[in-house]
Computed example of a mutant assay.
Amino acid sequence: MKTFDQLAVIGLREWINLPDLGMIGLRAKIDTGASTSTLHASDIQPFERDGAEWVRFTAHLGTLVQRPHRCEAPVVTIKTIKSSNGQAQSRYVIRCLLAMGDRGWPVEFTLACRKHMRYRVLLGSKALVDGQLVVNPALTYVQDKPLLRKPSGAQ
Rank of each mutant, 00 (worst) to 15 (best):
V129T: 10
A59P: 01
N17L: 00
V107K: 10
G22S: 10
T58N: 08
D144F: 02
K115D: 15
G101T: 04
R103G: 01
W105I: 07
L147G: 12
G101L: 02
I81S: 05
L111Q: 07
E48A: 04
L139T: 06
R67M: 02
V55R: 07
L61W: 02
L97I: 12
V107M: 08
C113D: 14
L122P: 12
D31V: 01
V129D: 05
T32N: 04
L122N: 12
L128R: 10
T77A: 12
A112E: 00
Q66E: 14
T63G: 13
P68W: 11
A99I: 04
S42A: 13
Q155M: 04
G86D: 02
A73T: 09
T32R: 06
Q66H: 15
L64T: 15
L98Q: 07
I94K: 01
S125F: 11
L133G: 01
R13D: 00
I24G: 00
G25M: 08
H60M: 05
G25V: 11
Y141P: 03
E72D: 12
P74T: 06
H116L: 06
E108G: 09
R91S: 12
S83L: 05
V107W: 10
R67H: 05
D31W: 01
M23W: 09
D144M: 07
G101C: 03
S152R: 13
P74C: 05
K126M: 11
S125Y: 13
W15E: 12
Q45C: 02
A34H: 03
V134E: 00
V135E: 01
M100E: 02
I16C: 09
R13P: 00
R149A: 10
Y92N: 04
C71D: 04
I44F: 07
V121C: 09
Q6A: 05
L97K: 07
P74V: 06
I10R: 09
V142F: 03
A154G: 02
D31H: 01
C96H: 03
N17F: 01
V142Y: 04
E72I: 09
K115Q: 15
V55L: 05
V75W: 12
G131W: 03
A41K: 08
L123Y: 14
K79V: 10
K150M: 05
S83A: 14
T38E: 02
S125K: 14
E14H: 04
V134F: 02
P106T: 07
V129Y: 10
A59V: 01
G124P: 11
V134M: 13
H60K: 06
E53N: 13
P146R: 09
T38C: 15
R70A: 11
W54H: 15
G124W: 13
G86E: 00
S37F: 11
V134I: 15
Y141N: 14
T36L: 02
A127E: 06
F109P: 13
K79C: 03
W105N: 10
S152V: 11
